[in-house]
Design a protein around this nucleic acid. Structure first.
Lengths: 337, 337
DNA sequence: TTGTATGCGTTATCAG
DNA sequence: CTGATAACGCATACAA
């Protein structure tokens, strides 16, 4: 049985109120008493009961970052940034991986004592967050009635495509992912098509694919399809780094050289892309900005639950790396050394 | 202000105890009452207060999986497995990333209401777990007085080295990582040296390195050192997949071909290794087994806090992939096509 | 500056 | 089968 405030108070010869004051850094406590209390806390190994405190104050001091269970590149970095940002505002963060299968998720997901939820990506309605303040992070789904922070995905894929055009590629394909949305043109394809048209090109039929989800294997499969076409693309813009890594692998396995025969670019700016070879060009989201804004939003929403929802657009930067290096003019065979 | 049991009881014209009974599936409730209560719960959107419940029962139904903040390959997969295993026993899991800097970690880490902690890898003493049941997961540090589950790392690196020997490599180097331990021969090096000696070889001085931590960049730097030696190794066994991925990159950047000029093998069996090119050979830990055992251990310890600590050794399997393919006898130059 | 008493929402004990 | 009531450990208004 763990020690309580009463035990400490008894040992220190003071009231529970005084111990509570000391624990919470209440300023008006005499030095002698404080030391006595601290000694007693130390001696008994007292640890405040979070549940009791939360029950009493109505505040848990904890934010939940709800992520899809699949381990995708970039989640770690975002989580780290969120933890940092939250710490700066007196909140802790727990990461709460949710089963992508809503059935299983529902049963396995009784709510945690948290003050608010940060929902990653396009997680569909998450059970157990009913009534809790929520902020969505990631690519924008149209028209949810919640706060959202993320990059402008249409512009990101447009910039990626423009970069490929700038390096001389002309037969550019696109791989997007996600559940079959009602929207006929998902943002990843939208920006891609915009850029092509701006360059006077038309997206070729069969050159934009939609994978079921953002798994490396999905990118791999989509890329195989692309590379099997009789008029093979010379570049692929992927809606995420995970898809791009899969594409890189498919190219390697098919003996297609990157970037000489095929340029590949992703979106996300993940570590895994940096450590792919050839290194993956990517449209990098400002993770720190996203994390800070998301935390700021959730804190604001906790304070003001009925305010109007806000959309925050995070800046993105093009990170050109080896996977989109300009195609050599001289295409003569050269040894691999 | 959220609705409480009392509100529901009032609306349903029953006592709070009855509502509580219904919520907890207590069997002896008449059908009419149950329906009335359920209707009231629905109407009011009642959600039980976890903190109050935990305070009352002394049981949170939550396990914390404490992981280092760095995003390393394989953590996602392990987390997923732990979540699954815990769900099977009625526990939820929250992932709690801890700053590797103990100073920052201490201030940012007031404890959550959880029933037990799963500590990943060689995290040093974690603040805030005092008195909580703990199980360590990962490579074994010698002689902690807690339950531990993980692979036998000495045998893993021995098997990896033996595999390299079996493919004809003879100048085999090793990269381990971790804080400078008192032990002169860390497990990663130990198994490596054992295997070499069993083959009648002696580990060459300068052929086993110790990186500061398991980051890809650490592996990269260590591999650069190795590759710069005048008598360059023809194989490297890395203590983790992260180090191996860094090694793969270093080789690529130095124009050293894998596996022709250099074989690389890691430990962990992570997804990232599967999607590296060439695909990374690895000694794969049985993640499901580890997760199930870890959860079983923590559940047992929660029930019996004073039982003697147990070490569980998880099986591992060699996964040979392209990065250690047998060196071709014919070393004539061949085109890259 | 410190002590006393009350209640946060829930479950458990014990009568009815 | 159901209802009143007492804790669980803590923070806080209020009193001293």
């Amino acid at each position: 049985m763990p020690t309580t405030l009463r035990d400490v108070a008894q040992l220190a010869q003071v009231s529970v109120k005084t111990v509570s004051n000391v624990m919470n850094g209440y300023p008006h406590v005499s030095d002698g008493v404080r030391r006595r209390v601290e000694a007693a806390v130390e001696a008994l190994g007292y640890r405040p009961n979070r549940s009791a405190r939360t029950l009493r104050t109505g505040r848990a001091g904890v934010l939940a970052l709800i992520v899809p269970e699949a381990d995708l590149p970039g989640i770690g970095a975002l989580a780290r940034a969120v933890v940092r940002a939250a710490a700066g505002r007196g909140y802790r963060v727990v990461i709460d991986p949710i089963d992508s299968d809503p059935e299983r998720a529902a049963v396995a997901h009784p709510p945690l004592p948290v003050d608010g939820c940060l929902l990653l990506a396009n997680l569909p309605a998450v059970p157990g967050v009913g009534g809790l303040p929520v902020v969505r992070i990631g690519r924008f789904a149209p028209g949810g009635h919640v706060d959202r922070v993320g990059i402008d995905h249409v512009r990101a894929s447009r910039d990626a495509t423009a970069h490929l055009l700038g390096t001389g590629r002309r037969r550019i394909a696109a791989i997007d992912a996600g559940p079959g949305e009602p929207s006929p043109t998902p943002p990843g394809i939208q920006g891609y098509a915009d850029a092509l048209r701006a360059a006077g090109l038309a997206p070729l039929p069969g050159h934009f694919l939609r994978a079921p989800s953002h798994q490396r294997a999905d990118g791999y499969r989509a890329a195989r399809t692309l590379l099997a076409q009789h008029r093979r693309p010379d570049a692929v813009v992927c809606a995420s780094d995970a898809l791009a890594v899969g594409t890189l692998c498919a190219a390697f396995d098919a003996g297609v050289r990157v970037p000489e025969d095929l340029a590949v670019i992703g979106v996300g700016g993940s570590e895994e892309g940096r450590w792919a070879r050839p290194a993956l060009s990517t449209v990098s989201a400002d993770t720190g900005f996203i994390a800070r804004q998301a935390v700021a939003r959730i804190v604001a929403r906790i304070a003001e639950p009925n305010a109007a929802p806000v959309d925050v657009v995070a800046p993105h930067t093009l990170l050109p790396r080896a996977s989109t290096r300009r195609a050599d003019r001289s295409r003569v065979a050269h040894s691999s050394c």
